[in-house]
Nucleic acid binder design. Sequence first.
DNA 1: AAATTAGCATACTGATTGGTATGTTGATCT
DNA 2: AGATCAACATACCAATCAGTATGCTAATTT
Lengths: 218, 218
Amino acid sequence: MSRAQPTTDAATAAREEILQAAAELFTDLGYALTSIDAIAERLGATKGRVYYYFKSKADIFFDIQRAAMARLMAEVEPIARSTLGPADKLRGMAEAHLGMLLADLPIQKVSVQGLERYLFHSSGYRYVNELREINQLRDTYEQIFAEVIDQGAREGVFSDMPPRLLTKPFFGALNWVTVWYRPRKLQDAQSNRMIVETLVSFAMQGIQKEPDHEPKSG
Amino acid sequence: MSRAQPTTDAATAAREEILQAAAELFTDLGYALTSIDAIAERLGATKGRVYYYFKSKADIFFDIQRAAMARLMAEVEPIARSTLGPADKLRGMAEAHLGMLLADLPIQKVSVQGLERYLFHSSGYRYVNELREINQLRDTYEQIFAEVIDQGAREGVFSDMPPRLLTKPFFGALNWVTVWYRPRKLQDAQSNRMIVETLVSFAMQGIQKEPDHEPKSG
DNA sequence: AAATTAGCATACTGATTGGTATGTTGATCT
DNA sequence: AGATCAACATACCAATCAGTATGCTAATTT
């Protein structure tokens, strides 16, 4: 089998450990400034280990994206499939989404911000397929939210602006957490609950139908 | 005067041109992957020109940040000083803020996303002062919004969550535009108005006081 | 117990790039 | 009209780093 993707549990765990370390460095330094040597050093190892499990730096990057999207999807899709009404369903999805961002911050941070352009423009068209794959995943994920928003709009509880446009500030209010949030040593559980509560409430309010300013009559 | 910052109009224009080109490349490639040669090439020049006006790549980066914050502040502060009520004032500030993001996209994009960490962690403590300066500017700017939100909360029209926390999804809904927006060749004026309208309305609704779910009585 | 191989470490290379040192030239001053 | 200098261009260097080639060792297989 030469040296394709290893499939044993041990190999999967080893890959996961590398992805985690790489994600932390990517979020601190950015993709370009993160050297393979630095990733290896964080694991107490050397380049040899990294290149044994991944064939290139870009390969690591794209695997982080796939992992991030897969985890989000696994949490959110079941809620989207449920029989809840649009408002409760969307709230549940938002809580799951934001909860995953905070629980898996380094990897989600790499994924959620638009870092792909680095590779896209810099290395010409070498990674076109991978970029399209990731964009496809993200698009599908966003579409799940857009459909719930659309249904809510048709039922008259959500704003009737184009659903695809409404997903932008909706995700913005939530995803922006990856820009400003810094994990503290203590007091995380409670303050995280408050963050989730505040951001999700904000996003849900934002998407609500605008009340008439002057209700002239019934 | 050796070679400190030039102060003539021509020199200011030359610096501005470099900042613009650098900002466009930074947003496409990221800081690390943008070479000084590439910046110069975009201007039809060579390194010599760039290093005549800026002493280092980091110097360019920080000047972009200063310019971005100065322009936002110039648009928003007059509105904050006006005598409008909290709701109208905040809406005006949001429109001015978002309008400036779209009008000055490359430079604002570099500023608004959290790209500072690249330099901070990578180059040790060499740019601590500049980073503190930029963080200070951003903090002051955010504080202007927080005060309006606080006033609105005291008057009972805005949510009574901590104002500093509320600014996060508020800016998130607006600033996220720098992540997803791609300028088109045509049809910009009208679609931009719709974007501003949708995002600002979303943000304003999000910050509103939650209506009681079951209004028991009058 | 000999052979093989998985799981790394070590050594090396070519390409890129930030920064500097040194030209070059047209304009301005004297 | 010579001197000066602003505004660049050119040439060069030292450091960094992705990727490769090879070496080593403990486990597993035979």
